[in-house]
């Protein structure tokens, strides 16, 4: 893997206008729309509706950004993971003699470098709007903003890397998107509610991600969260490593 390969990977992703539009919409677009609605409501009837900013709206927006940002991460990650194979150009990269593992490795790096500016922009919008439009409400503190941003980044970026690995393993983008979104946004949410599973739920990525959520961000939506920071950290790392290992194995052994 070298810098030229990383730049090439970024070029492949950012020139997909439709994909980039969706990722932008599901990150900065989503929080912008949310705050716009809140601001319009407050402007139309300040007595009935509180200001658009403030700590509470920041917490809600951060939770919203995490959920919908994971969908954006899945869209981008699966393109990075399965785009070459799906487009039939993987074989042309293999015949360069470059090792297949380095061809796989550059996908995650490229996807991260494309995704990070977009999610950071969304976080910036969230923090600035929540602070400046707080009005009479308490504004989020700088420390809380950093903590919450870290949690959003952890949740979305881990999902991005997992999406790269899983789509490389499956080798096709559409099934990968279906599997990942269904698992993370539907099945995992339901499993968190099944109390008789007890600590088995610690193995879920979602419960580990919930552990790191700053106070108040999840509100009553957590369902279940891993209690131990060490276990939660290991679970996130295990999911990422397992997905990458599967994707690397498939990339190395598949007929190109």
């Amino acid at each position: 893997m070298n810098l030229r390969m990383i730049k090439a990977e970024i070029l492949k992703l950012v020139t997909r206008r439709g994909l980039m539009a969706w990722v932008l919409l599901l990150t900065s677009g989503a929080v912008s729309i949310m705050f716009t609605v809140l601001a319009v409501r407050h402007g139309s009837d300040p007595g009935k509706y509180s200001p658009a900013g403030g700590l509470h709206n920041f917490q809600n927006a951060s939770y919203f950004l995490t959920s919908i940002g994971m969908a954006a991460a899945v869209l981008l990650g699966t393109m990075a993971g399965a785009g070459d194979v799906g487009g039939g150009v993987f074989r042309d990269l293999v015949v360069t003699g470059r090792s297949r593992l380095s061809l796989f490795g550059v996908r995650s790096v490229g996807a991260l470098l494309v995704f990070l500016p977009l999610i950071l922009l969304a976080l910036g919008i969230t923090a600035v709007v929540a602070t400046t439009l707080s009005g009479s409400l308490p504004a989020p503190s700088f420390t809380f903003i950093i903590e919450t941003s870290g949690w959003v980044l952890l949740s979305t970026c881990s999902m991005l890397i997992i999406a790269v690995g899983v789509s490389s393993l499956i080798g096709s983008r559409a099934p990968s998107i279906t599997v990942l979104l269904a698992w993370q946004l539907l099945v995992s949410q339901l499993l968190l509610q099944v109390t008789f599973l007890g600590h088995i739920r610690d193995a879920l990525l979602l419960s580990a991600q919930h552990h790191f959520a700053p106070a108040g961000v999840l509100g009553g939506r957590a369902g279940y969260a891993t209690s131990s920071a060490v276990v939660a950290g290991l679970v996130v790392v295990a999911w990422v490593i397992a997905a990458l290992a599967g994707g690397a194995w498939r990339t190395r052994t598949m007929d190109a």
Partner: peptide
Amino acid sequence: LARVGAIVEEPRFHPQLTGRQNLYIVAAC
């Protein structure tokens, strides 16, 4: 393979990229 150029079956490219950018993608490897 460093001194081999190859076309296997029909040549495939990233359709959203220009011809020059497609060559750049492979040259990077």
